[in-house]
């Protein structure tokens, strides 16, 4: 009884419902999924144990390798383009006294829209008949007449652009929050020393927001693994696997090709990759990094 009324356990009691929900919705299916990667289950019917056959096939699968490469590319794009733009805009916004809220709202607005809405807007915009494609064709610029989402050389970058366009506003908001935490006296001292705007950013702002900045990089790396919705809606992974990413590849195998065992093997590798990334950040924290 004392155990139940012990105040130090109260927080645990409140967490129990969430733990149970997570256990049933995420925990058990995840464990089952890990088990399925060693089977040839179609999603229905009999389950046959096949050992590591799915993994052997996977490491020989050229489209899976292509999907991994695209995920790496996606991660690099997101670690650079939106981060740089968001850092710059957030820093510039700190200098704006009037109308700052308007900019913050404008930047953040795409993040509030559903991915399917964002995607449809850009698909219509680049539509070859009704969109800019038709316009460019009518003025004789044939190179821009086709939709970048359906062109093999541009499809991945086009999908990443739309996702990045929706995402960078979110980064602006979290960087801005970090920048407002910086002690103003540091900037005043720098002004007395005659530091330029860039020097203040480089030597005061960036070091002071480092925990938030590193956190943003971590979530970008983790979120780049299961990237799915923008690719699925805009390109479906095509044309010719040119924008195929691992999550879309998993989806196709699980729900279109009736290859749940194989898809589970893909999911298992994704799981271990995320654990690895989180582990690295955990290790850095233990080594004293402020993240």
């Amino acid at each position: 009884m004392n155990f139940l009324s012990n105040k130090s356990y109260i927080a645990w009691y409140f967490v129990i419902p969430v733990v149970f929900i997570h256990l049933f919705v995420i925990g058990i299916p995840s464990i089952l999924s890990l088990a399925l990667c060693l089977t040839d289950w179609s999603g229905l019917g009999k389950i046959n144990y096949v050992g590591f056959e799915n993994f052997i096939e996977l490491f020989d699968d050229r489209y899976f390798k292509k999907a991994i490469f695209h995920n790496i590319l996606w991660t690099i794009i997101f670690l650079t383009v939106p981060v740089c733009i968001a850092l710059m805009c957030a820093y510039l916004l700190t200098g704006i006294k009037r109308g700052q809220m308007f900019y913050r709202l404008a930047f953040f607005f795409p993040y509030m829209l559903a991915s399917v809405v964002n995607c449809q807007i850009w698909k219509y915009l680049f539509h070859p008949i009704h969109g800019l494609g038709g316009f460019f064709e009518s003025i004789g610029i044939e190179a821009l007449a086709s939709s970048p989402f359906t062109t093999k050389d541009t499809s991945l970058y086009a999908a990443a652009f739309v996702d990045g366009w929706h995402f960078w506003g979110f980064l602006v908001v979290i960087y801005l929050t970090g920048m407002y935490q910086v002690d103003n006296h540091l900037y005043e001292a720098a002004d007395i020393e005659g530091a330029s705007k860039f020097q203040k950013f480089r030597y005061i702002t960036l070091p002071m927001i480092r925990p938030i900045f590193i956190f943003s990089l971590m979530i970008i790396i983790i979120w780049s693994v299961p990237v799915f919705d923008y690719v699925y809606i805009l390109t479906g992974g095509g044309p010719a696997y040119s924008s195929e990413v691992v999550a879309n590849y998993l989806y196709t195998h699980a729900f279109v090709r009736f290859n749940v065992g194989y898809a589970s093997a893909v999911g298992t590798l994704m799981f271990f990759y995320v654990i690895f990334i989180v582990g690295i950040f955990g290790l850095l924290r233990r080594l004293g990094w402020e993240i």
Partner: peptide, 19 residues
Amino acid sequence: WSGSLENYYAIGWDDFHAQ
């Protein structure tokens, strides 16, 4: 089909009926 491979990929049900 619809002028080019890229256009074929970009055109849907309503579009090709309209065309």
